[in-house]
Amino acid sequence: MLPELLLGTDAGGFLIIRDSASYSGRHLLKSFINAALNREEYVHVLGFEGSEEELRDGLKGSPTQRLHFHNAFTDPLGWTDHPAFTVYQFNFEELTHLVKQTSHPKPAILIIDSLSWILRHVSPPAVCKTLQQLKKGGAVRAIIGLLHADMHQRGTVGSVCHLASSVITVAPGMKGDEAVAKITKRSKSGKVIQDEEIFNIKEDFTVTVQSKLSHIGPKQPDPEEKEMDPTANLTFNLRLSDTEREAKGKLALPFVFSKEKKTALLHSGPGSGRILYEPDANDDYDQEDPDDDLDV
């Protein structure tokens, strides 16, 4: 599935490359930039973690004339008088204006390097709102972002990845030049496809897949991960046989009244007794204070 994603992201798509300290996803991010430029796409890069010289030097041989770099690396927090781009400009209005400053015959692809830098200075709800607006706004055709998962809380990573149509989690492979990509892709119909691929990246940033293992739908738990039955090794039986279940169903509970018992209690039959009381003259009964005879 990794080569298919490199061929192009659907309109409105949002792809996240999720890495950690054990393996950097920046080379794979450059592979996506290189593939987009070779497809004659227009690419806008928000560079927080690298300079424009470093990026263009790594993409030698690619048609970088359609690459627009927005320098957020030199002054990301706007401490100088004339910053090029700051983290506080990461909102729908500013980014739309930034992309539309350059006339394109078609919507561009927005590369965010990286989302982690933005999440360290902008609240996660605001970041998610901006990403959702960019997906639907039409100023960009697709978004590709790098996310360092071990820099954030699990809830923050989950919220951002929930917005993505595809998530590529990269990790080191068994050999030095190999890496493992765990891919989760959500189609517009709601179908979820999962792949696990071993790949390597060449010097020209082309990606070669070595082996592939596909999963469709949610991942099935391993037998060792299945929850054990807590009633398996008990010395007594918690389950009823069919005969015991039938006998239980016929048992009359003490607090359940039958129809005959209800009738007998609610309607007095012949021969039932009554208690009649007629007060006499010696009864000291005060209508105003019925408890007057009590010593209280």
Rank of each mutant, 00 (worst) to 15 (best):
Q153W: 04
K188T: 15
D229L: 01
M151H: 13
I198R: 15
K185E: 05
S166E: 04
M228N: 11
S166C: 14
V170L: 05
F205K: 01
V160W: 01
N200P: 04
K182T: 03
A149F: 00
I216L: 12
V192H: 00
P221T: 12
V157K: 07
F205P: 01
A164M: 04
G190S: 01
A171D: 14
H152V: 00
K202F: 03
V209M: 05
P221K: 14
R186E: 03
R186N: 10
S166Q: 09
K185Y: 09
I216K: 11
V170W: 00
V167N: 00
I183N: 05
D177M: 11
Q153D: 14
F205W: 01
V157L: 09
N200H: 10
E225A: 14
V207G: 01
R154E: 11
E197A: 01
F199I: 03
Q210I: 15
I183W: 07
Q194T: 10
P172I: 07
E203S: 12
T169E: 14
I168M: 02
G190V: 00
F199E: 07
T184V: 14
K212G: 06
A171S: 14
A171V: 05
K182G: 00
I168D: 01
V180K: 10
R154V: 10
V207I: 05
V209P: 08
S214A: 13
F199S: 02
K188Y: 00
I193K: 15
K185R: 13
Q210P: 07
E178K: 05
D222Y: 09
M174W: 10
T206H: 12
A164W: 04
L163M: 04
A181H: 04
S214M: 10
A171T: 02
E196A: 01
H148V: 03
V192C: 02
D177I: 09
V157R: 08
A232E: 14
I198C: 06
P172G: 05
F205L: 03
K185L: 09
